[in-house]
Nucleic acid binder design. Structure first.
Lengths: 204, 204
DNA sequence: CTTCTGACCAAAATTCTAATTTGGTCACTC
DNA sequence: GAGTGACCAAATTAGAATTTTGGTCAGAAG
């Protein structure tokens, strides 16, 4: 069983450095110090090996989210911290960021499908997290799958496309956005008017 | 000046049908019934002509948003109707949907830049709309540019990537998402607990 | 037997080159 | 001055030649 581990280790390194398309089975075999045929004793194809490695990534993503949770802290504070941890993870995890680059640069179908699979898993996980919030009575009843998807995409879009183009966002900016848009909602409640920092109530 | 109009009309038709890369200056000239040199009397390059046509699209997008507004109706109802109109517009407007397809299929740089320009203009427009809401006292104070960006991206993502993969969304689903996530916020307020449709307050 | 190897193959990707097409120009016509 | 279209360098395409790649399998190793 030591051989299988060596193959997985080599595959992880290769996919992380060269992406899906840029990695060859020969390369993995060489890196693992085994023959090419040996790989096929454990995995039926390059794509199967790749998808096996993706499962590792998915597990790690969850761990990153969970590691950001602080026991006893406010539900939404924890959720926001988790979302930020997910964003951080994308930059830190070599294989993930390589796949993102590969899709952008070459549009490799397998890499694209892989990222979609990861996103799907993360959305599922987030949805379950939200569902727990609903059952705890802190989150409004809603289509948690849809909300999870929107949260993830919103964070990704803001950090990837907004921030670089229109000036960087501080953690505080992001947290304020999260609270004011998603948590409290955009509608200004009557009783909040005075607290909004407007000195007088006179409106044009 | 009739000649310039003929050129613009031909350019619009050509870009709409063949995209940026697929359209040639000869083609536009033929379609407009003028010589190629004539085009260069009015536009310094293919790209300049293309960007001129984009300004038309941007104006039309705004009109589509405004046409969806109902005088006297609730601000957020109008906003949601406007967002849905923007989504509709993308599918209906030939040049816009062709550019989206071109970017997906070939990744043409000019088409990508064009779409970004349109998005930027729409976000600016939406941000001003939100700012008016803030001044009217119906929208919470916030970074309207960031919120406008998030709203547009959220709607696009849901309709383009969520809905096709996980079953279609009715207008009602979308409106509920909009209200519960963006307008009222995800946080369940104390007084709402009873109204949420849960018969008794007992929670496991 | 099972575990593993590496030469081998068809298919896919890449490279090289010739031929075509394209955006843009300009001497010329009207 | 407004408009034309032959013309050009540069970019794109076409397609054959070559290399690389995922996957196989007869046989070595244990």
């Amino acid at each position: 069983m030591i051989m299988r581990d060596r193959i997985e280790e080599a595959a992880k390194r290769a996919f992380s450095e060269f992406g899906y398309k840029g990695t060859t089975m020969d390369q993995i075999a060489r890196l693992a110090g085994v023959s090419k045929g040996a790989i096929y004793l454990h995995f039926p194809s390059k794509e199967a090996l790749f998808q096996h490695m993706l499962r590792d990534v998915i597990a790690k993503v969850r761990e990153a989210f969970e590691a950001a949770q602080v026991e006893g802290d406010d539900y939404f504070r924890n959720l926001e911290r988790g979302l930020r941890a997910l964003m951080q993870f994308r930059g830190d995890h070599a294989m993930l960021s390589k796949l993102v680059q590969e899709v952008r640069q070459f549009g490799t179908a397998e890499a694209r499908a892989g990222l979609q699979e990861i996103e799907g898993a993360v959305v599922d996980y987030l949805a379950r997290h939200l569902q727990r919030g609903v059952e705890l009575g802190v989150v409004r009843r809603c289509r948690v799958d849809l909300v999870a998807f929107v949260l993830l995409r919103a964070y990704t879009a803001v950090l990837r496309d907004f921030s670089p183009a229109r000036g960087p966002l501080s953690e505080e900016d992001l947290y304020q956005l999260f609270i004011s848009v998603f948590v409290d909602g955009l509608r200004l409640k009557e009783r909040e008017t005075a607290a909004e920092g407007r000195p007088t109530g006179e409106g044009g």
